[in-house]
Nucleic acid binder design. Structure first.
Lengths: 237, 237
DNA sequence: GCAAAAGTGTTGAACGTACACCCATGT
DNA sequence: ACATGGGTGTACGTTCAACACTTTTGC
């Protein structure tokens, strides 16, 4: 198969990995670069895409190679291609973001040459390339998306209480605290949560444990897409 | 500046151009390919990105070269990179979508070798590559986005009536017809429309003409982002 | 006068918001 | 007993959704 003549940029895949451990801050997984350019500076996990792998596949491969983290939710974010964003020449980066619950995925085993660390999202070091811009976009996408798609569940353990879920939303959205009563009513009304038991050995009234019910969620989405729409338009203001 | 050794895929930019002329169907701009592969088949405007241009810039350049259409709203959509999607080898396509009002941008001048045509979105020909998938994604993105961002105005002339705006929403969302009273109330309440006059010489009560007020819109967005949020979460169901 | 599309008043149901209160458990 | 977080009742205002109606133009 002939390949025609034209300039060839390099293509990398990078991943913004958000982690949550139940606290009041989101965490971000970074690696310390072991080689030039930007040697010694912190950067997003990522690297050059192979010729025979899909983009998402490459993102997950690089992530595991560099940090040991695997088995997580990942989605494409945006492709950064401005000339000059990489001193090695024309490098186009297909950025992804990923969500992971830190209690399932331990502290991220450091690899051979480079250090790997979880940073608090609001206390990041200086970053290589344009990775600060990528992180900023990923953060705003996460905040926007968590409102209308149940991706937040990826950041929690399989079973969780409504209190934990509410704390997560408050953390992601960065708001002080919203009303418990109304949060419960709204989230339970959707029907996408399924009771699976109660807490044990806690120094207060044990909370009901819930699990995200993906089947119910998909059914709801189909109903909306194929059917009567509840609100015609909104502008989200 | 050294460039390290690694495989180099080709990178293209493609554009899904949606057009609206006031009717009950959206239109899509396609070109007929003049060379292999897929010679003679219809495809999205697009081509290889140059080494010194940004991705969006390349998309607009290719669009103008191939169809003559320029000066329109364009935004990145998604990057398609599955191995095997192009018979010429590993080709990664950064897909964009664009919106244009057909009364401002005439019928798309055919270029040298290839034909250019507007197709009704729900009556498309067979398409080259995976362009059918790209169009499908662009369509669902448009439908989703029109609900919470005022991109619909890109599809209308500068001045328009509320009736025309409502017809556009009904066309984009593909719903039969929603209540006139409630549509008016909701859209006017946002304050992003500005009165600019009245229709002339129509065989019925002349409608008020409006213009989209981008300044007011930006102010609203800032208020929401930096301030109190109206609805905490939603899931859009 | 009539057709056609613009534009308005109003009402019952659903939802958002806020506040106050009770409940179950470990120490 | 009490600290702690889980969980509920309820009331008021706003928004949604639907329907019927009036207004202004050209022919």
């Amino acid at each position: 198969m002939p390949t025609y003549e034209h300039p060839r940029p390099s293509v990398t895949v990078d991943v913004v990995v958000f982690g949550y451990d139940g606290g009041s801050h989101l965490k971000l997984l970074l690696i310390q670069r072991g080689s030039e350019p930007f040697q010694g500076q912190w950067a997003l996990p990522g690297g050059f895409v192979e010729m025979d792998e899909d983009l998402e596949e490459g993102a997950l491969r690089e992530l595991e190679e560099e940090t040991g983290v695997k088995d997580l939710f990942v989605e494409q974010l945006y492709t950064f291609g401005k000339p000059g964003r990489d001193p090695r020449g024309r490098v186009i980066s297909v950025a992804h973001y990923a969500l992971v619950n830190l209690s399932n995925h331990p502290a991220a085993a450091s690899s051979d040459a480079s250090r790997v660390e979880w940073f608090s999202l609001d206390d990041l070091p200086e970053l290589a390339f344009d990775h600060d811009q990528i992180i900023e976009l990923a953060t705003s996408r996460l905040r926007a998306k968590v409102r209308y798609q149940p991706i937040g569940f990826e950041l929690l353990p399989e079973e969780f209480t409504l209190g934990e879920l509410q704390a997560l939303y408050e953390t992601v959205l960065g708001v002080p605290e919203f009303n418990k009563r109304n949060f419960r009513t709204r989230i339970l009304r959707t029907g996408i949560l399924e009771e699976v038991g109660r807490q044990k050995n806690v120094a207060h009234r044990p909370a009901t444990l819930y699990r995200f019910n993906e089947v119910t969620y998909r059914r709801l989405v189909e109903q909306r897409d194929s059917g009567v729409l509840r609100r015609a338009l909104d502008f989200e203001i």
